[in-house]
Design a protein around this nucleic acid. Structure first.
Lengths: 340, 340
DNA sequence: CACATCTGTCGAACCGGTTCGAAACTTTGG
DNA sequence: CCAAAGTTTCGAACCGGTTCGACAGATGTG
């Protein structure tokens, strides 16, 4: 494999001249520059990433730290990952995907060894053990998900509170007065998945204000448990005319449940989910839903991260906590409740 | 951040002694070794990955090159990725996930710049443009998926031919004499997705041998097209008593179709799919299926790759093409056909 | 007691880039 | 025609590790 020394020799110049000719960081006469470029081309020269990283203290790699819990819904993760890798590449960065179970060790390893210029953290827990490490790390970081303490961090998330309010308001406006909210399983909350209670508590609050009855329950993450649960809920709340779903597995399972019960959506039951358009297409879910925009979130986090990595000025800027506003998409599964 | 020079100074030894004390590649007196270890601990020393890569010509990173086509079924990909990243980590490697649309450029970049010690290629096309690059690269590679020409490559895939035969044999043995096979959409084949015709052709051949009528058709990758197609197929082949599915989207859409038509599985229709257990659980599919074992395939590819990377001997070994034998899992959706 | 051997440590070179300061060569102006 | 200024290129140092050969001191042998 050709080194810059080989290129320099081939072009008949010194290594430094070759370097400057290729990087353009100093004026090099047009004639010499062309010779160097031709030599590089002829030798198929590509800079050695390790050597460059050592010299410039930049790796042009971002770390993406994800954690996969057995009981979580893996397909949804893919969209976040693609949002991150594609955006990173557009900005000239590659992505080191770390899925190690021990997130603290993983983060320490990639930052301490300087394998990455910055990191994106996913699956943020309310009291995430990785955050102290990140705050102490020399590289900047960006979170996708809201922790309890955002100090010293750039944070990006869907506005789950607003999502909860939006769901309730929309159905209240249509005339619904009794709703069911199916959240993620309880252990997701125990693990610190704050978005679950953020949406739920805001929805409950808004329901109270509007005089709407809202039954909020934890869901399940697997079949057949989640199907059983949905049936049970519809059994014990026969007066409920609307269903709010903050749980991918429950959304995916709902069509067969309504079908089996002979329920028409939206005539007999209005439904609003919270998931991505991609997810809706994959599972062919016909419900109105709050777009959770995983690709946009991943892209935002990376763009901010790269700005902080590259610009000395941005490095000093105050930290941001930015929420994507929830939007109600294709509202085809909600309607006024039928008079009883 | 502490360098090995800092550690050496702290311990009162030379840099080389510090290096040997930490790596154990030469005898160092116990007393000095302890001093160095203590100094490293005190300074929270972690080797700089770039410097080490430069010195050892090893990055301890593997490349994972995946390609995402708009019309493909993304959720299934996640299992392969996790199989690769987790196995890699167990063996001491991190994973660079590259999802760039231009796979050739991506592969060239990561290999030429020596960012990785080896690469795993996914989404292999029959005539994959990346393969010449890989064969010429200094790093070894492993494919997950079977290309037309395996020469000079380590290849790992499910035995799709055997899967096709297994499906036909199983239903033939139960007494079925007319079957439908729904494959991936035609454009997947056009793009070079050989596994589609490998399974189909083997199934057709075996059906011919057994005197079974097999209607093989291309499927669709999205709702509502795939649901329409399934209905249409059941309409025009009323005598068919078994359905073979080599198409994730079709498998996911089938329950609602059979339900709507009032078909009981397996009494009225026996069904065998080809997908992973993880996929089955996610979509709560109750069908007998051939396990496609994405995590095992990913793990196998990585283990072989790492062996080739690390062992001089393995580097010289002949290339392997290894197929995972298909296994029929939870055969609850097949039964003898009802007498008509 | 001289000499060979073994052990533990050090210095220097190397990996392949980047970058700074200075040297060599041109051009300009008095 | 010479000095000053500007342009272009070079040499050397540095980034942070690893590794080879050599050296010093301790140990063993005849």
């Amino acid at each position: 494999m050709a080194t810059i020394g080989d290129v320099a020799r081939e072009a008949g110049v010194s290594r430094s001249t070759a370097s400057y000719a290729l990087s353009g960081k100093r004026r090099i006469s047009e004639e010499v520059r062309q010779r160097v470029l031709a030599a590089a081309e002829a030798l198929a020269y590509t800079p050695n990433a390790g050597a460059r990283a050592l010299a410039t203290a930049q790796t042009k790699v971002l770390g993406l730290l994800a954690q996969f819990h057995e009981d979580e819904f893996a397909p949804a993760m893919m969209q976040y990952i693609l949002g991150v890798t594609n955006t990173a590449r557009d900005l000239g960065y590659d992505t080191l995907l770390v899925t190690e179970a021990d997130g603290v060790r993983a983060l320490r390893r990639v930052t301490d060894s300087r394998m990455v210029d910055g990191v994106v953290l996913m699956n943020i827990a309310h009291d995430d053990a990785r955050l102290p490490i990140l705050r102490a790390a020399p590289q900047p970081g960006a979170l996708v998900g809201l922790p309890g303490d955002c100090s010293g961090l750039d944070v990006f998330d869907l506005d789950f509170e607003e999502a909860g309010r939006l769901m309730v308001d929309h159905l209240h406006r249509l005339g619904h007065r009794e709703l069911i909210l199916v959240s993620q399983p309880e252990h997701v909350v125990e693990r610190g998945g704050a978005y679950v209670w953020r949406l739920r508590d805001a929805a409950l609050e808004r329901a109270r204000q509007r005089g709407v009855v809202l039954h909020a329950v934890y869901g399940e993450s697997r079949q057949p448990a989640v199907g059983r649960l949905l049936n049970h809920l519809l059994d014990i709340h026969p007066e409920a005319t609307g269903l709010l779903i903050n749980n991918e597995a429950a959304a995916a399972a709902l069509p067969s449940v309504t079908h089996a019960r002979g329920l028409r959506v939206p005539e007999d039951l209005s439904v609003i989910g919270r998931y991505s358009a991609e997810f809706a297409a994959t599972f062919s879910l016909p419900y109105s839903h709050i777009e959770s925009a995983p690709d946009r979130l991943g892209a935002m986090a990376v763009r901010h991260l790269v700005r902080r990595v590259e610009s000395q000025a941005a490095h000093e800027e105050p930290f941001v906590v930015r929420f994507i506003s929830p939007e109600l998409a294709s509202p085809g599964s909600t309607a006024p409740p039928l008079p009883r």
